[in-house]
């Protein structure tokens, strides 16, 4: 079995995996990071979205072996060590951007990439950017509101940190 070395949420881990092991199963079953969900398992719903080298991808449609040497960020890697929520997580809470929440980790991870890569997010850009994330509660209205607010907070935050 190939051995993979992947930096997950800042921690570098090495594990033997089968060739067929999907990244999502590596994260959930080998590392116990169950915040990344398996929804449809057909690369449509986006509940399994994580960041690989900063890009959002569906971890049910990537082999763990393909992530060898890469940096992976999951929902568990967003909050600060003291538990302070990432601005996008805080915005989802404030704007009630979830109903039963199964899609939420994937939504938040997609939103983080969207906010980082799109300078002036509009509502339409958020809706287009969420094409790969499905909310079965159809609670998109508050999700979009949360992402717009979270993106704004992410723009502000680096300035605030620099001022400290």
């Amino acid at each position: 079995m190939p051995t993979v070395t992947i930096t997950v949420n800042g921690n570098t881990v090495s594990r033997a995996v089968e060739g067929r092991t999907l990244l999502v199963h590596f994260l959930r079953e080998q590392l116990g990071l169950t915040g990344t969900h398996v929804g449809c398992d057909t690369s449509q719903c986006g509940a399994c979205v994580v960041l690989v080298d900063g890009r959002s991808i569906k971890s049910c449609t990537m082999l763990a072996a393909q992530a060898d040497g890469r940096e992976v960020t999951t929902i568990e890697g967003l909050a600060a060590a003291d538990g302070t929520l990432h601005p996008m997580q805080a915005a989802f809470r404030q704007h009630h951007g979830l109903q039963y929440g199964f899609c939420t980790p994937g939504m938040v991870m997609s939103a983080v990439e969207l906010a980082r890569t799109t300078p002036h997010l509009t509502e339409q850009a958020v809706r287009d950017g969420l094409e790969g994330n499905i909310c079965r509660c159809t609670g998109y209205h508050n999700i979009v509101k949360a992402i717009l607010a979270g993106a704004e907070a992410m723009q502000v935050e680096p300035v605030a940190q620099a001022a400290e």
Partner: peptide, 9 residues
């Protein structure tokens, strides 16, 4: 093509 995550792979 597809969605953002598909375009990233």
């Amino acid at each position: 093509i597809g969605d953002r995550q598909v375009r990233n792979r």
